[in-house]
């Protein structure tokens, strides 16, 4: 178990404005020395959610504790385990998930210990501010939830796993707008999966080259037309969210089920994969200095 101090977390989730993070995120918290929550921080909360089961902090806290326990000493491996389970626990719409205040609340009031455990730099000794409050591909919880959201295939979370295979490739892919087209995201994940399966050396650099090439090609090619996706059934997601009222907590040793809102069109992915493979083959490979994926500096 971690040596971090305990956190006195609230029972229900809420919204915490970005300004409150700027003001109250102390060095002591970032360094994991003290997770005391000043009353001013509690007062800065914009809104606490009504008492719906899906907004209960308990299940999230349990997950986080299990992750810190399971992956003690190999923290980067926690992401791939946590991402689908956090997504299936925090059942919400994209509109709700796009509100940065929710992620601020999780990082500042629910599980600052997890943020520090996962992202404390080995040299700096602190976790960066952006891990508490920041873009969806950087913030400690948002990156996990959104990776599951963007790479799942309907209710199937399996494609999320290869995505997390190469830590430093994650950042280069997740911010790209091209992956908002689901077949594009799926095709890239399939290639990453192949690289992992074949044990290709310098695979991260390949992934970087791939994402750069696809992003550039996306300036002249419209993948939505080349590989049309099937529509997303938003009502199915609403049903899945409603089910959370009586759903059991997520399983630890097998993947949970995501919202059954429509699988990605396989034909579309099949069209894109060879195209992307070709882009990857032609892309210049720039071998970058090997970085410790665990190091967050």
């Amino acid at each position: 178990m971690s040596e971090l101090p305990a956190v006195d977390f609230p029972a229900v989730l809420g919204l915490l404005p970005d300004t409150a993070v700027t003001k109250h995120l102390s060095h002591a918290v970032q360094a994991g020395k003290d997770f005391f929550v000043p009353s001013a921080l509690r007062r800065a909360v914009d809104a606490e959610f009504e008492d719906q089961p899906r907004w209960h902090v308990g299940p999230v806290r349990v997950l986080v504790d299990e992750a810190m326990d399971r992956f003690e000493g190999r923290r980067s491996k926690a992401d791939v385990w946590l991402a689908p389970r956090l997504h299936a626990t925090l059942r919400m719409t994209r509109a709700e998930a796009a509100d940065s205040r929710l992620w601020n609340y999780l990082a500042m009031l629910v599980a600052p210990d997890y943020v520090v455990w996962r992202h404390r730099g080995s040299k700096s000794g602190i976790a960066k501010t952006s891990r508490f409050s920041g873009r969806h591909d950087l913030q400690a919880f948002a990156r996990l939830w959104w990776s599951a959201e963007l790479f799942r295939d309907g209710s199937d979370y399996r494609p999320v796993e290869p995505f997390w295979a190469y830590q430093d490739a994650v950042n280069s892919i997740m911010r790209l707008e091209i992956i908002d087209h689901r077949p594009t995201a799926a095709a890239m994940v399939r290639i990453v999966e192949r690289l992992a399966n074949e044990g290709v050396p310098n695979a991260s650099d390949h992934v970087n080259g791939l994402s750069k090439a696809v992003n550039a090609a996306g300036s002249t090619l419209v993948f939505d037309v080349i590989a049309p996706d099937s529509p997303v059934d938003h009502d199915a997601r609403l049903d899945w969210i409603a089910e959370s009222a009586h759903a059991a907590e997520v399983p630890w040793d097998r993947l949970p089920d995501g919202p059954d809102d429509g699988a990605v069109d396989k034909r579309a992915v099949d069209v894109l994969v060879p195209m992307f493979e070709k882009l990857l083959a032609e892309a210049p490979l720039r071998v970058r200095s090997k970085k410790d994926a665990d190091d967050d500096d």
Binding site: R175, L176, E177, I178, K212, N215, A216, G218, S219, T220
Partner: peptide
């Protein structure tokens, strides 16, 4: 530079 769909341009 090469144009891209989003983000930084190579």
């Amino acid at each position: 530079k090469f144009d891209v769909r989003s983000g930084g341009r190579p």
